[in-house]
Computed example of a mutant assay.
Amino acid sequence: MNVFDLSPAQIRNRLILRARRAALAAGPGPQPPARPPGHAEAAPAAVARVPVVPRVSVAAGDVVQLAESDYRYADGPLRLRIVRVRPDLSEWYDGEWVWLEGVEIGPDDQDAVFRPVLARVAALWPER
């Protein structure tokens, strides 16, 4: 896979992810000076955001049925045969959304186009 296989949003997400990982690896930045006793309490320190890796109940090879409200940039219901789950791109969606790569399945049960999908984790259940 090269950069030309990614959408602009996926490229942006990768750059953001790299920057956040570099910031976390660098450790805490400079600390403010301590206040002398008797002064008012300082404002609470900024809390570093810890990425949440989504936990999904589907894997490569599973087929999922997604309603229009269960994936971003939807244009109707979608049946998708999952090729890959992308937790590396998904960890900044608070565990509620996950990037999937898969092949769309048409109404005639034939494979259609390959597409990346940002799907709601709560809606991911493999077809039986």
Rank of each mutant, 00 (worst) to 15 (best):
R49L: 14
G61H: 09
V117K: 07
V103A: 08
I11H: 03
H39E: 12
P77K: 12
Y93V: 00
H39Q: 12
R55S: 10
V47G: 02
R72V: 13
R120F: 08
P107T: 14
P8E: 10
L89P: 02
D5T: 06
F114V: 15
E127S: 02
L15C: 11
P32I: 12
V98C: 07
Y93F: 05
R72T: 05
I82T: 03
G106V: 09
I82N: 03
P44Y: 08
V63P: 01
Y71L: 07
P33C: 05
D75S: 03
V117N: 03
P51G: 05
R14Q: 14
A122F: 08
V117S: 04
R72G: 05
R14N: 09
D111A: 06
R72E: 09
Y71Q: 04
E101H: 00
I11A: 01
A46T: 10
I105A: 02
N13S: 14
P37E: 13
H39G: 08
A60K: 10
L124Q: 10
A60G: 12
R84I: 01
R14T: 03
R120W: 06
R79Q: 11
R21Q: 07
A40D: 15
G27L: 04
P8T: 08
P116R: 02
V103T: 15
A19W: 12
V3D: 03
A122W: 06
A22E: 14
R128E: 12
P32T: 12
I11R: 02
P54G: 12
R35I: 05
I82Q: 02
S57I: 09
Q10W: 06
R49P: 06
R21Y: 06
A42L: 14
V64S: 06
A26H: 12
